[in-house]
C-alpha cells in the first residue's frame, strides 16, 4: 500500500473518532477537562484557594484562540517546510537532471 493510501485511511479513522464524539454528545458543553477537575477540587478541598494567579491571561476568548492558532501554525509551518525540503532532496537524488 502506498504511503498516501495508508495516510488517507489513518486520517479518516481520526476524523471518525472526533465526529463520533460530537455526534454521541450533542447536548454536551465540550469544556476543558481541567474545568471539571476544578469542580472536583472544590468538592474534595472546599477551603482550597489557588495561591498563585497566572501572570498574564489572554484578555478574551478571541485572543486566546488567536494565540492557539499562532502556536499551531508556527508548528505546522516548520513541519511542512521540513517535509517539503526532504521530499525535494529525495526527488533530486532519484532524478538528478530535474532541477
Amino acid at each position: 500500500m502506498s504511503i498516501i493510501k495508508k495516510n488517507v485511511i489513518l486520517l479518516f479513522m481520526i476524523l471518525a473518532l472526533l465526529v463520533y464524539a460530537l455526534v454521541v454528545n450533542q447536548g454536551a458543553e465540550f469544556g476543558g477537562a481541567d474545568g471539571e477537575a476544578e469542580s472536583v477540587i472544590a468538592e474534595t478541598s472546599p477551603d482550597y484557594t489557588p495561591w498563585f494567579q497566572p501572570l498574564w491571561e489572554p484578555p478574551s476568548g478571541e485572543i486566546e484562540s488567536l494565540l492557539f492558532s499562532v502556536q499551531a501554525s508556527v508548528g505546522v509551518g516548520f513541519i511542512c517546510y521540513y517535509l517539503g525540503y526532504r521530499a525535494c532532496l529525495r526527488r533530486k537524488e532519484r532524478e538528478p537532471k530535474c532541477d
Binding site: 472526533l18 463520533y20 458543553e29 465540550f30 502556536q71
Partner: peptide
C-alpha cells in the same frame, strides 16, 4: 514542532469534554 501543534489542538472526546 509536532508537540507544539498537537498540544494546541483541543479535541472533542466521547465524554462530552475536550
Amino acid at each position: 514542532a509536532f508537540v507544539f501543534v498537537l498540544s494546541s489542538l483541543k479535541m472533542p472526546s466521547v465524554t462530552g469534554s475536550c
